[in-house]
Each structure stands twice: as C-alpha cells, then as structure tokens.
Amino acid sequence: MAERPGTDAATSARLSKQRRRDTKPELALRRLLHAAGLRYRVDCAPLPGMRRRADVVFTRARVAVYVDGCFWHSCPVHATRPRNNAQWWADKLAANVARDRDTDGRLTDAGWTVVRIWEHEDPAVAAEKVITTVRADRTSD
C-alpha cells in the first residue's frame, strides 16, 4: 500500500491492516441475523454496476445494511481527527461521509431501504433494527 502523504511508516502499516469486511461488529451482527432465521448476502453491491458494497444485503426485501466504523465514517460520538496531516485527513473523512450520503440517496431512489449501524452499537439492538426493517419490507409486498 502506498504511504499516505504526511503519514509515517508505522501509521501507514497499521492502516493497511484495517479490515474491509468481516470486522468484529459485522460478524456479531451477522451471527444474530442468521440465528433469527434471516439469510443474506455479504459484501455485495446492492445495485448492478454500483461499485459501493453493503456489508449485509437482503436482495428480496431490498434492504442494504452498512456497519460503519466510527473513525472512517466520522461518528458524532467517537470520531477522532489525526493531528498528522490534519487537512488531508479532514478532506478524506468528509469525502467518506459525502459518499455515504450519496450511496443512501442512490439506493433510496432505486427503492431500497438503507440501514446504517455504528460499530459501537449493541449488536442485539442493531440486529433488532435490521430484523424489523427486513420483516416490515417483506410484509408490505
């Protein structure tokens, strides 16, 4: 992985090891959804040609679930701002949030329901939110 401008080698190495999928919060959520009898796709683009992938996708119910990391998606409670290369990081994190809002809009316009969960949320509460959404969409058919 190329080193980010103004990022030291140790930080760059640590960031390169960040998981893109199968994080602990994701696995905990998926385990509870599976135990509730729901079946889903993992790390899947909800719309054809859409390069943005949802963490959990219920294709029939048209529900896309994203488990957002507090750092990468600027959680209002737990977000931190790096001091090194502060402006580059501010721009990067703002672009992530803008992309999230754009993704939500595209999916909503295409008839999908988007569920966003923060990594710090209680997995049982998050799973109940997803289960309720998926089952509500199934009964509205």
Results as ranks from 00 to 15, higher is better:
29 L>E: 05
23 T>F: 11
95 A>P: 08
30 R>A: 06
76 P>M: 00
88 W>S: 02
90 A>I: 08
43 D>Y: 02
9 A>E: 15
65 V>R: 02
27 L>Y: 01
24 K>S: 13
130 V>W: 06
39 R>C: 03
33 L>A: 02
138 R>K: 06
8 D>R: 12
126 A>M: 07
47 L>G: 06
70 C>T: 08
39 R>S: 10
102 D>G: 03
136 A>Q: 12
121 E>D: 13
104 D>T: 01
61 A>M: 04
72 W>T: 06
109 D>W: 00
108 T>R: 02
110 A>R: 00
72 W>R: 05
50 M>W: 08
67 V>K: 08
127 A>D: 02
47 L>D: 07
80 T>F: 08
127 A>Q: 03
23 T>M: 13
34 H>A: 11
21 R>F: 10
55 D>E: 10
37 G>N: 07
63 V>Y: 02
141 D>N: 06
44 C>H: 11
22 D>V: 03
120 H>C: 13
53 R>P: 15
141 D>K: 09
136 A>D: 14
51 R>N: 15
26 E>I: 05
81 R>A: 12
103 T>D: 12
49 G>V: 09
126 A>W: 00
47 L>F: 04
133 T>Y: 04
98 A>Y: 00
48 P>R: 04
79 A>P: 10
55 D>V: 11
95 A>K: 10
87 Q>L: 04
111 G>C: 00
48 P>H: 01
127 A>F: 01
11 T>W: 00
5 P>V: 13
20 R>D: 15
28 A>R: 06
51 R>F: 04
73 H>N: 06
75 C>Q: 04
76 P>K: 01
2 A>H: 13
12 S>R: 10
111 G>W: 01
128 E>S: 12
74 S>P: 01
13 A>W: 08
131 I>Y: 06
42 V>M: 05
118 W>R: 11
2 A>T: 15
101 R>A: 08
2 A>Q: 14
23 T>H: 11
67 V>M: 06
11 T>Q: 13
132 T>A: 15
89 W>I: 05
121 E>T: 01
87 Q>N: 08
38 L>T: 07
24 K>P: 14
21 R>P: 05
17 K>S: 15
52 R>G: 14
109 D>N: 04
18 Q>R: 14
102 D>C: 01
136 A>S: 12
94 A>Q: 10
65 V>H: 03
117 I>M: 07
91 D>R: 07
139 T>M: 05
96 N>G: 06
70 C>Y: 09
55 D>W: 00
3 E>A: 11
61 A>N: 04
86 A>V: 07
48 P>K: 01
133 T>K: 03
124 A>S: 13
127 A>H: 03
48 P>S: 09
136 A>N: 14
43 D>C: 11
102 D>I: 00
3 E>P: 07
60 R>P: 05
51 R>T: 13
58 F>W: 00
55 D>S: 12
138 R>A: 07
88 W>I: 01
82 P>R: 09
45 A>R: 08
118 W>H: 04
131 I>E: 10
125 V>P: 02
105 G>M: 00
109 D>E: 09
47 L>A: 08
19 R>D: 13
